[in-house]
Design a protein around this nucleic acid. Sequence first.
DNA 1: CTCCGACTTCAAGCGCGCTTGAAGTCAAGC
DNA 2: GCTTGACTTCAAGCGCGCTTGAAGTCGGAG
Lengths: 165, 165
Amino acid sequence: MTPSRHDVLTIGQLAERSGLATSALRYYESLGLIHSTRTTGNQRRYPRTALRRIAFVRAAQQVGLSLDEARAALARLPEDRAPTTREWNAVAAAWQHRIDRQIAELQLMKAKLTGCIGCGCLSLTRCGLYNAGDRAAAAGPGARYLLTRDPDSGPEPGPAPGAEG
Amino acid sequence: MTPSRHDVLTIGQLAERSGLATSALRYYESLGLIHSTRTTGNQRRYPRTALRRIAFVRAAQQVGLSLDEARAALARLPEDRAPTTREWNAVAAAWQHRIDRQIAELQLMKAKLTGCIGCGCLSLTRCGLYNAGDRAAAAGPGARYLLTRDPDSGPEPGPAPGAEG
DNA sequence: CTCCGACTTCAAGCGCGCTTGAAGTCAAGC
DNA sequence: GCTTGACTTCAAGCGCGCTTGAAGTCGGAG
């Protein structure tokens, strides 16, 4: 079964089907998230499995993974076919832990807010919100993530300066 | 009651107490999130209420607000005293909606993952994950937020090109 | 043949939330 | 006086996830 013209997508077609801009797709390819072959005229041709990989990446982003982390996760799934239940199970389980943790954090935040409503506080010392930023403050430079990144992974080369109070 | 030396904080003291770097505090001040007076030697002196404002901002970030949005929210609270229950109530209620929405999205994602485990799919057309990125794809340029920003606010001047599939 | 649009590469830019560096000032201790 | 360290301003840089622009190529229609 050599791939016929319909088994393969131009970057424009892939963009339309995935909802991403062609620039984003080239960027993804530069990161190794998707792969393409080239025509004799040096144009990219993507296999249909690229759609699955993109879907995976977008889902990974929603779970809070960076593109680099998504690539690592993607490396544990087969390149050219849909993952088996077993393969998918391992990945999904890890994501569920992430999601659960994020949900737990949000619920904690919500509880703190409710407590604040009850006490009318934000009184500098007693308010639970006052200590809500502990983990976020420990993150490195760069744009801050909205929710806490994986707390028990990563080298964390640069400790936050002056954070010891 | 003129503010004595103990009612007022240097930027270094504020950094230590808030857990933020002095550079971050200057940045916050440049954005109007906190305010300071100056000594005769042109050094910043922050009122203790700055601590409360910073706590508020950090909490706002956890809820998913940008610093600009945090400033807008902060503008609805009094500058120089703790907010009353009524004042706080309005803000907290808005945040709770945000949090609830984020939790709902995460739970939806989790359900989709569970479904995927059950069906062993990612089969391009049937998988719920496949359509999980709809809203994220509609966002503009720049670093992507991990979770969906407020879907019904903001001018959104630049529609994502090629997002119509 | 021309023309057009979809493709190519590469470098640079953007937006956010900061940090870093350079060059200078101020305040206290020896 | 000198040193030290905390402060000042301003500009530039970083990391992520892309987009934008310039300059050129490919491939089919007329």
